[in-house]
Design a binder for these strands. Sequence first.
DNA 1: CTGAAAGCGCTAACAC
DNA 2: GTGTTAGCGCTTTCAG
Lengths: 371, 371
Amino acid sequence: MIDFISSPHLSINIFAFKTAGGCQQSPADWKTRGNKFMDKTIEDIAQKAGVSTATVSRVLNNKPDVNDETKKKIEKIIKEEDYMPNGIARGLAKNKTLTIGLIIPDISNPYFPEIVRGSENQSKKMGYSLIFCETQNNKKEEKRSIDLMRSKRVDGILLSLSKNNKQELIKLQEDQFPFVQIDRFIPEIQSSCVIINNVNAACKAVNYLIKKGHKKIAHVTGDLKTQTGIKRKEGYQKVIQENNLKIKNKWIKQGDYTKKSGYESMKSLLDLSEKPTAVYFANDLMALGGYKAAEEKNFKIPDNISIVGHDNIDIASLIKPALTTVAQPMYKLGIEAAKLLIKNINEKENDYRHKILSTKLIERESTAEVR
Amino acid sequence: MIDFISSPHLSINIFAFKTAGGCQQSPADWKTRGNKFMDKTIEDIAQKAGVSTATVSRVLNNKPDVNDETKKKIEKIIKEEDYMPNGIARGLAKNKTLTIGLIIPDISNPYFPEIVRGSENQSKKMGYSLIFCETQNNKKEEKRSIDLMRSKRVDGILLSLSKNNKQELIKLQEDQFPFVQIDRFIPEIQSSCVIINNVNAACKAVNYLIKKGHKKIAHVTGDLKTQTGIKRKEGYQKVIQENNLKIKNKWIKQGDYTKKSGYESMKSLLDLSEKPTAVYFANDLMALGGYKAAEEKNFKIPDNISIVGHDNIDIASLIKPALTTVAQPMYKLGIEAAKLLIKNINEKENDYRHKILSTKLIERESTAEVR
DNA sequence: CTGAAAGCGCTAACAC
DNA sequence: GTGTTAGCGCTTTCAG
């Protein structure tokens, strides 16, 4: 504190006697200013440099047409004074905040932190910062979050909304508010998005099993109200048909992406009289549930049953046997989404781009050749 | 768009001919306004209601002294027009943004997402939103992040800085800028913090092993440049001494919280001629490394060696054998930190509070009675 | 190349 | 109770 108070620039500040604003607590008759932490303003710098605020603003914003000498001088003072422009004031004046919103359902789902990391890293790199909301898949929260972001005047939003909240997206669209959908794509909405090719990903998993000699392949689907769930199932069915294997409805169990649903699906699969020799789970979490069921029923993985998951969450490589799975580039998903959004923000014309990232099968220990 | 353009309030808006500001792209000679998405302003509402902006502002801020009728009328119009105050303008006028910053080293470390979730949920509940930065334990990034937050005029910061970045904290402190340290506490700094009692946590782990009959207990420490590392080791030593077991230096291996260091420490422990019967790892990740080493050396857990971890990350319950560990209330850590920060923000006097949360030993399958 | 001044949307004295 | 007005700190015409 001390050095601020005795700092010379304050004593010559012509605003030193302005009304104290919201800061009534400050020592009675000291020279003070409204802003809470006595932050320096562009005025202070202008005075020190003996120029107008306009000129300081020019160098702050790298505008051309400012004398090299004055520019150097101003820059020096800015550095000396450790001045930092007030982003809020700037935001108000420029009508952009260099902030983007990120709305995801659930950060404790191991799928999302990497996405967050990707978007954070990329936004930062491009000069934006991230304001973060979690919605717990709750429709009300989703609306609240979007409203919040808009009231905070973010320049755009990255979001991953629950199944049936088109409404909010439509509103954004009508207002021409920049946004990009991550991972979960609501197809009726005309917008940019970054997703993976889920059909293709599923194909990779099932083809791999077939190459290993499996002919009886089951599938535990994801939530079939989501695109990801639907598409992965589609991929599964496609490959089965292409290889002239019969699609047994008994071998398709509907899950919902929770471990529990994986557990239960696997249990009923293993209760069948004609059991599959392999099962493809629409995500790793469910596969984990499958492990538990297999263990309880004394099925050895992969000797008695092969398992393939989807996502490649951290745990996949740590459990035993390590889980063969289809890896999604989550970090990259975050990166690309941020890139796309910022591009959309800075373009006059909104043309919508769909970025589709590729997946990769990671072979581990949960799958074996069928004898 | 259509309904905005034909919306009656626009046609009577006296500001309709203001300069177009940054929005030159808008259809040439239409009535337009500077702000990007033609958002309504408090002026619009005031006009519709036939009152001054001051009055609208009053109802917006729930100030007393406004006629019930006019209040109702204004509220109705606000709802009809779907008006939402501009947070940036508000921030500038009030000198507070209702935003807090969260700075953590690494969101992909499974330890942190829960903290993020906790702070997000709690801040939201208290009317604040979160702006998020990740630093990868990089000192430069830490400074950048703090500067960023300050330039965005957050009302306070939650942070978990790397070992030796006192400097930045000291600066915050000097400026009387509200902040609270999470998990990692730099003791020389006078500030609020939310941490766990690490000595006590370690005691729980080691006492438990002793109760199980173990007399030869090793410890793989965390990074000893962190408080958490130091304190856990302290706890370990304390219990060993209290129980009159000898502290063997050979049984204390210095790790750094990475899986790899756990792996290597365990390997050298198992190479000893006098092997421990149990080892307490300062975090779960290292314990995981320990699993791998044990496996390679054909030591069965828990039959040949017992293992206790620390943190209770997700994986702990999923690996086999499931890991006995000391659980930290990470979600709660996030919650309490947010509460404390917001309290600090709204208090005139900064008195610093240390909130110390308790831990809990979770017994699973990686520990056995010693014969 | 630089300065004066108007404004971004809102709040908060102060007056009536 | 309500309106007037002067800011909040910065950007951006428009003159010169």
